[in-house]
Design a protein around this nucleic acid. Structure first.
Lengths: 189, 189
DNA sequence: AACGTAAACTAACAATCGTTAGTTAAAATT
DNA sequence: AATTTTAACTAACGATTGTTAGTTTACGTT
C-alpha cells in the first residue's frame, strides 16, 4: 500500500528537522508541532519514529541503485558513465536536499533495515569502483589508486545536499557540467 | 588552566562514541561505561556534556585556522598553497579521525560557542576561496565558478576522517600526493 | 438518519536523559 | 600525624523521551 499524502507530509517535515539537528535530536513532539498537531496524532499515520527514518533512507538509496544500474547497462565509455553519475547525484540531491542529510548522517540509527542499507551502499560503491577500474584498463583514466578516486568524487557528490540549497539560483544542468569539468579534469590550468 | 589527563581521556572516549552515533545519541552513561566509572563521576572532570563537544570542535577549528594562516602568509603560488592545504587536512584528519566527525556533523549542537564556530568556518572558507580566485587571476587555475571549486575540494577534504581509518596502511604523505593529483589535475587521462 | 472511518485529541506510561547533592576512600600535601 | 584534595561512589531530581490507550470530532457513505 502506498504511503498516504498525510504520511508523506509527516516524512517531509521530519526530513527538514532531521537535516537541521540530526535524527536523534528531533523528537516526535518537534515533528508534531510543525505539523500543527499533537505527537500522539502522528501515530495515526506512521508506525513509529524509526519508520520515518527508514522510509527516507531506503527510498533514496534505492533511487541511487536504480540510477546507477541504468548507467552501467549503457554501452558507453567510462568518462561518459562518470558524467552520468554526476548528473544522477545532482538530480537526486537537488530534489531531496533534506532526505540526503539522513542518508549521509543518520543511517547508523536504522535497525531492521540497517543491513539492507549497508548492502546497497556496498553495491553502489563497488559498481562505482568498477567503472573507474575499467576506465584505467581502457586508458581513459589515470592509473592512480581507484579507491582514492572513488572516495574523492563520491565525497563531493555526497555533499551536494548541503551546497545546492545555498546556490538554488544555479541550474542543475550547469552545476553538473561544471562539476564534471572540475572532478574529471581538475582545476589546474 | 590546561585540561587534565583524565579530562582528555574522557574527551577522547566521547569523540569515539560521537563518531559512531552522533553527539545527541550518546549519553553521559555511555561515556562513563567505556571509562569504567559512573556517569556522575564524569562531573569531577568536566562541566557538562556540552563542554566536551565544544572542546572537540573549537580546538580542531582553531588548528585549521592556524594552519591556513601559515599557508596564506607564505609567498608561494596558488597551486602550491592548495597542495599545502591538502596536506593540512590529511594531517589533522589523520590525527583526529574521531573529533573530525563532531566538527563536521555536530557543530549545530554548540550553544555558547556556536557563533564563534560559524565565524571561524566562514573565515576559513573565505580564505580558501581567495586563494582560488587569486589563482584564476594569475592564470594558474581554470576560470570556473570559484565556489564550485571550493565546494568540491573542501567536500573531499572534509570527508577524509571517514576514509583514512579504512586505509590506515596508506602513508599520509602518499595519500596527500595522490589527492593533490586527483583534486588539482583530475582523473581524466 | 444512522453508521463507519479517519484523524485529531487528552492523559498517561515506563524508560531514560543530564545533572546535582552528599558521601567515602585513597592519595598528596602540610 | 593531621589535613586537604582528588576522584570515585550512591541516590535521586525534574525534565523529556517514544509510545499506548481511550475518547472525541467531523465527514463521507449507506
Amino acid at each position: 500500500m502506498n504511503p498516504s499524502p498525510r504520511k508523506l507530509e509527516i516524512i517531509s517535515v521530519a526530513s527538514t528537522l532531521f537535516k537541521e539537528k540530526g535524527y536523534s535530536a528531533v523528537t516526535m513532539r518537534d515533528i508534531a508541532k510543525v505539523m500543527g498537531i499533537k505527537a500522539a496524532s502522528l501515530y495515526n499515520h506512521i508506525k513509529n519514529k524509526e519508520e520515518i527514518l527508514t522510509f527516507i533512507i531506503i527510498s533514496l538509496a534505492e533511487e541511487f541503485i536504480d540510477g546507477l544500474e541504468k548507467i552501467k547497462s549503457g554501452n558507453n565509455d567510462c568518462i561518459y558513465k562518470l558524467k552520468q553519475i554526476i548528473i544522477l547525484h545532482v538530480d537526486i540531491s537537488s530534489r531531496n536536499t533534506n532526505g540526503m542529510a539522513s542518508l549521509n548522517n543518520d543511517w547508523m540509527h536504522l535497525k531492521d533495515q540497517l543491513n539492507h542499507y549497508l548492502a546497497l551502499r556496498m553495491e553502489y560503491e563497488n559498481s562505482f569502483r568498477n567503472i573507474i577500474s575499467e576506465g584505467i584498463l581502457k586508458n581513459e583514466i589515470k592509473n592512480i589508486n581507484p579507491d582514492i578516486m572513488v572516495f574523492s568524487i563520491l565525497s563531493t557528490l555526497r555533499s551536494l545536499y548541503l551546497w545546492v540549497p545555498k546556490k538554488d539560483d544555479m541550474e542543475p544542468t550547469l552545476l553538473a557540467a561544471n562539476l564534471s569539468e572540475v572532478l574529471l579534469k581538475g582545476i589546474n590550468k
